[in-house]
Amino acid sequence: MPPAAPSFELLPGAGDSPVILHVPHSARAIPADVRAGIVLDDEALGRELDHITDAHTAEIAARAARLSGVAPWRFVNRLSRLVVDPERFPDEREEMLAVGMGAVYTRTTHREALRPADTDPEPLVARYFRPYARAMTDAVADRLAAAGRAVIIDVHSYPTEPLPYELHGAGPRPPVCLGTDSFHTPPELRDAAREAFAECGETGLDSPFSGTYVPLEFYSSDPRVSALMVELRRDTYMTEPGGPSGPGLDRLATALARLVTAVSG
């Protein structure tokens, strides 16, 4: 059965831009047949979506793209991460399996049941995860062919207070957290981000979330692919949890545009 809604969308930027703004967790849509496998009632599911969704990050990326000196490409997940989480490892390498949040979640942000514990992830992985991964791999390959390099900037958000599912929630929670990778995040990309977001408050590294997303075909093997995760603390731009955006959204979008412009040349 085909998806009830497009699973993802690649929105073109400038032909010579190396930048892909990746927005994996901004959507709330769940196809009806996938919803049937979730044990929460509608009210509880709505609360879980409020907590787990990186609300308004697609809008931040869209505004940044319009403001950038060189328009970046955007790869946007149009379905909730409760369908599949495209940024997880699809195998035993994924540390979030420890809390039931691998590629297909079986537990909620509060460590309660989301799906039966014996749920077979393979049907959802085959239907959603692998096509997403292939399309993102192709998008990066296209940027390598067109620009000779690719810069993946992940656009995320996180709550002001840690949620029970977080494995590393005890550390600092600055207004902007930059997730880095020892292979794919060169110092100049990290420093450009710190400068771009300087007006948005403290910018920290790898706390409460660390790492970056790179398609497995290039992961830890192709230095032409650089990557950075930008995590925005939600109280800086929206009402938590799951509420409307506020004036901070424009400030963050402008900062993200500065970063895109800085790394596009």
Rank of each mutant, 00 (worst) to 15 (best):
P121S: 09
P164K: 10
R143L: 05
M136E: 04
Y128Q: 02
A141V: 02
A145W: 13
L124I: 03
P123T: 02
R134I: 00
P116H: 04
P159E: 04
P116M: 05
A117R: 15
V125I: 14
T108E: 04
Y128D: 00
R149M: 03
V125M: 14
H156V: 00
T119Q: 06
L144R: 14
R134L: 04
Y132Q: 10
A135I: 03
A145Q: 09
T108K: 11
A146Q: 07
T108M: 09
T109L: 07
D138H: 13
T160L: 12
V140S: 02
Y165V: 01
I152V: 15
D120N: 15
R130L: 04
A145G: 13
P164E: 12
T108C: 13
A141F: 05
P123N: 11
F129A: 01
D154I: 00
V125W: 02
E122F: 02
L144G: 03
A139G: 09
T137H: 13
A117M: 10
L163G: 04
L144Y: 14
E112G: 14
R107E: 13
P159M: 10
E166R: 12
A145I: 03
I153T: 06
P121N: 07
R130K: 11
D120K: 09
V155E: 00
V155W: 01
T106Y: 09
P121D: 02
E166A: 04
T108V: 07
L114Q: 12
V125P: 01
T106D: 05
E166K: 10
A126C: 09
A113T: 07
H110C: 04
A139W: 00
P121V: 00
A139F: 00
R107M: 11
A135K: 04
P162I: 01
H156K: 07
T119A: 13
V125L: 15
G148K: 07
E122V: 01
M136A: 14
A133H: 12
V140E: 00
R115K: 07
H110T: 11
D138S: 12
R149L: 01
P116D: 09
T108Q: 06
T109G: 12
T109S: 15
F129T: 00
A126I: 01
A117F: 10
R107D: 10
I152A: 11
V151C: 13
E112M: 13
L114K: 11
A150C: 15
M136H: 04
D142G: 10
L124Q: 08
H156Q: 15
E112Y: 14
D120L: 01
D120Y: 08
H110P: 01
D138K: 13
R115V: 02
Y158W: 12
P121C: 03
V155D: 01
A126Y: 11
T119M: 03
L163N: 06
S157D: 08
P123S: 06
A133E: 10
A139M: 01
A141P: 05
E112T: 15
L114F: 11
R130A: 00
P116W: 08
P116T: 09
P164N: 12
P162H: 14
A133C: 06
A139P: 06
R130T: 05
V125S: 03
A135F: 03
R143T: 02
A135S: 15
F129V: 00
A150M: 07
A117C: 08
A126L: 09
P123A: 05
T106H: 06
R107H: 15
P116S: 09
Y158R: 10
